[in-house]
Amino acid sequence: MLFTWFWLIAVMITGYVVFDGFDLGAGVLHLLLARTDQERRTVLRTIGPVWDGNEVWLLAGGGTLYFAFPLLYASGFSGFYLPLMIVLWLLILRGIGIELRTHLNSPVWTGFFDGCFAISSLLLTVFYGAALGNVIRGVPLQTDGYFFLPLWTNWRTGPQPGVLDWYTVIAGLVALIALTLHGALYVALKTRGEINLRAGRLAARLWPALLVITAVSLWATLSIRPEVLNNYKAFAVLFIIPVAVAASLAAIFIFQRKGSEKAAFLSSCAYLVFMLVGAAAAVYPNLLVSTTDPALNITVYNAASGRHSLSVGLIWWGFGMALAIGYFVFVYRMFRGKVSEGNIY
């Protein structure tokens, strides 16, 4: 039961990263890829009808966490108070950035919202990566299960780290590069002409950076937290995950070269999925580790809701998510193919 809910939450977070990831990436890129107002509209059009639904994965995932592991939700959200509040502000700016831009046809208006959208998308990817980095590195949990992290302390990973240190900054960069590449592949898939070419070129340039940063992050993780290998050593079959990460990285490169846009984008989805699954497999059954004393770790055992809540939850949750997946299939089918260029109103 606990195992199931752990993986359901991992699925929700992965769903969020894979879906909202490409519209975040497109947001990071759209000022680079698109030079004219016309082109910017085209880039935004590739994500316009789907970004809001993609973001629902975050809300539904956060809610699921609250429901299934209230202690983790309570401890994590209050402990990461400052970065989460910044994330909320960025989500607000990003939402109005994309939605309000097209209401007025004036360079100042559209310029302002383009800036909001690009900057908030960029910072969000970094914060999300850093958040995952914090979970892997651990936080100074107190005996009552709570903690509070300042934004930064001395930039070192130690018993009293900040939200940002050298390790979490690397994790932030992984997310920034991975999601930007993910976004570039998506924009290439959904557009024609000049933008399609630029997106493809950018993706080709980002790929080596992703390769390097992935390797660096792996080394960094193993050096600050060798325990992440414990589960892998116990179940050697898990080593298939890092192999799959490497294979999907290679697939991105090959398909991108060959011009198979769809396959390249799907490989990038696979890369994100395997990275997150690999991280989840490494931390289980811990949810949040303590930097001071392993006895204080928040685990699926001490954080979970009651059995009755969780078993009844499986029924309605499964039903609701089946419906949600149905809507997603429906919306993406309606929106399949490349978006049209030009000024359609």
Binding site: V56, L59, A60, G62, G63, T64, Y66, F67, A68, F69, P70, L71, Y73, A74, S75, G76, F77, S78, Y81, L84, M85, L88, G145, Y146, S305, G306, S309, G313, W316, W317, G320, M321, L323, A324
Partner: peptide
């Protein structure tokens, strides 16, 4: 939805098994 955890964490911790349910249901 975030503020239950950020500002009212102890409330969230003890009530998650109940009101977490309608909040997730709203999402899904």
């Amino acid at each position: 939805e975030f503020q239950f955890g950020t500002n009212w964490s102890h409330f969230a911790r003890v009530t998650g098994g109940v009101i977490g349910q309608p909040l997730v249901m709203e999402g899904v």
